[in-house]
């Protein structure tokens, strides 16, 4: 009697679950609407409207979950992670990456998107002070040349951090040999990194490469990158004992950070200038 009652309850439960479940409906207009939202958010981020970009990504994410589009959901989460990392919100970025990873494990997503998640996780880990060399080594064999370049550049930064400058130099040279008109930003990143590697010994080469990075960043006109290059040059001249040049570059950097409203960097540069002026 008891077992038959149990069976009845289980059957009833199963029937309820099956009758309530309805597979998500594929709706082409919703898919195109979602794609256009993601493109809109990307554009907002590119023109520096971070707040608008964040709102649009969040809206797009809701829509993506509604139609259970896992591929687009992962793309949005990666973008949000990059947006938060640009605002120094590393913990928020990290939680976006974790969500993207969980989603990608459950569903089949495009190969390039999968690589983007692995790279993003390694990048965020690097910003948190951890080194995910294995993932990046795997990405250096990617089919996408841009992904290979990015993986090599980041891996080189890790090598430099752990005190293996020779290894870092080789990786950067490989990235530069691959980067034939593929990404100007990454090219500038490679030159800057090479300048950083040579700054402990090969003074002339370091100066040349740091200036080359600055030249490229001026061409692509990204103020944050120009500021970063000038700050690097300021530090380089300061370490080399060329106070006048160092102050000159720090002053220019200060103007850029002030223009961008980056107060924490502004304070740091003011301290550098004060220290050099003593």
């Amino acid at each position: 009697m008891r077992s038959s009652l149990k069976l009845c309850v289980i059957t009833l439960l199963l029937v309820t679950v099956i009758s309530c479940y309805r597979a998500p409906v594929e709706q082409p207009h919703r898919i195109s609407e979602l794609s256009s939202l993601i493109l809109q958010a990307n554009k907002a981020f590119e023109r520096g409207d971070i707040q608008a970009a964040e709102l649009i990504y969040k809206e797009a994410y809701k829509k993506a979950r509604l139609i259970q589009d896992d591929n687009s959901s992962v793309i949005i989460l990666i973008s949000l992670s990059r947006l938060y990392s640009s605002l120094d919100k590393i913990e928020d970025a990290s939680s976006c990456v974790e969500s993207a990873l969980r989603l990608s494990e459950k569903s089949s997503i495009d190969r390039n998107v999968e690589e983007e998640i692995i790279f993003e996780r390694a990048r965020i880990e690097f910003l948190k002070g951890k080194n995910d060399e294995n993932s990046l080594k795997r990405l250096t064999k990617s089919e996408s040349v841009l992904m290979r370049i990015k993986a090599l550049n980041l891996l080189s930064r890790i090598k430099l951090r752990v005190g293996e400058p020779n290894e870092a130099e080789n990786l950067i040279k490989e990235a530069l040999s691959l980067n034939k008109n593929i990404s100007r930003i990454e090219e500038a990143n490679s030159w800057r990194l090479l300048g950083e590697i040579y700054s402990k010994g090969k003074h002339n080469l370091a100066e040349k490469y740091l200036l080359r990075a600055l030249e490229i960043d001026k061409e692509i006109a990204i103020p944050e990158k120009i500021g970063l290059d000038m700050e690097m040059l300021g530090r380089f001249y300061s370490n080399a004992g060329e106070k006048r040049k160092a102050i000159e570059y720090f002053n220019r950097t200060l103007e850029i950070w002030r223009g961008l409203g980056n107060q924490s960097k502004e304070i740091k540069i003011i301290e550098e200038i004060k220290r050099l002026s003593l």
Binding site: F45, I75, S79, R82, L83, E116, R123, R192, L193
Partner: peptide, 11 residues
């Protein structure tokens, strides 16, 4: 549809 480009030398 792609995510925004990552920068390997953001800071």
């Amino acid at each position: 549809i792609r995510p925004i480009e990552a920068d390997t030398y953001e800071k």
